[in-house]
Simulated scan of single mutants.
Amino acid sequence: MIAPQLSAALEDWLAQGRARRGLATKTSEAYRADVAAFLVFLARHNGGAEGTEALRRMASSDLRAFMAHERERGLSARSLARRLSAIRGFCGWLASREGFDASVALSARGPRGRTRLPRPLTPDAARDMIDAVETDAAEPWVAARDAAVVTLLYGLGLRISEALGLRGAQSDLPATLRITGKGGKERVVPVLPAARVAVADYVRLCPLRIAKDGPLFLGVQGGQLSPRLVQRSMERARMRLGLPATATPHALRHSFATHLLAAGGDLRAIQELLGHASLSTTQGYTAVEVGQLLDVYDKAHPRA
Rank of each mutant, 00 (worst) to 15 (best):
V149T: 05
L252M: 13
A43K: 00
R236V: 11
L261K: 05
L241F: 07
I160F: 03
A15P: 02
S171W: 12
D213Q: 12
A24Q: 01
G265Y: 05
G92M: 04
A138K: 13
L252S: 07
V104W: 03
R32I: 01
A163G: 10
I160Q: 04
R187P: 05
V188G: 01
D62E: 05
P193Y: 02
R240D: 03
L39Q: 06
D295K: 15
A54P: 08
G181W: 00
S76A: 14
V290F: 14
P111K: 01
P249K: 09
H69K: 05
D12G: 02
R116G: 14
E70Q: 15
V199K: 02
R71P: 00
D172N: 13
D136R: 14
L117T: 07
R209F: 07
I160N: 04
I210K: 05
G22I: 08
L14R: 07
T286D: 09
V191I: 11
P140C: 08
L261E: 03
L42V: 01
L152H: 04
E186D: 15
M1E: 12
E29Y: 00
F90Q: 05
A68P: 00
L260S: 08
C206T: 11
R56N: 00
I2M: 12
R73W: 00
G89K: 04
R78I: 00
G222P: 07
R187E: 06
F100D: 05
T281A: 13
V133D: 04
L84C: 07
F217H: 05
G223C: 00
S103I: 08
W93E: 05
H259Y: 07
V142Y: 01
L156K: 00
R88E: 09
S233N: 12
W141F: 06
T180S: 08
Q231A: 13
A147G: 15
R88I: 05
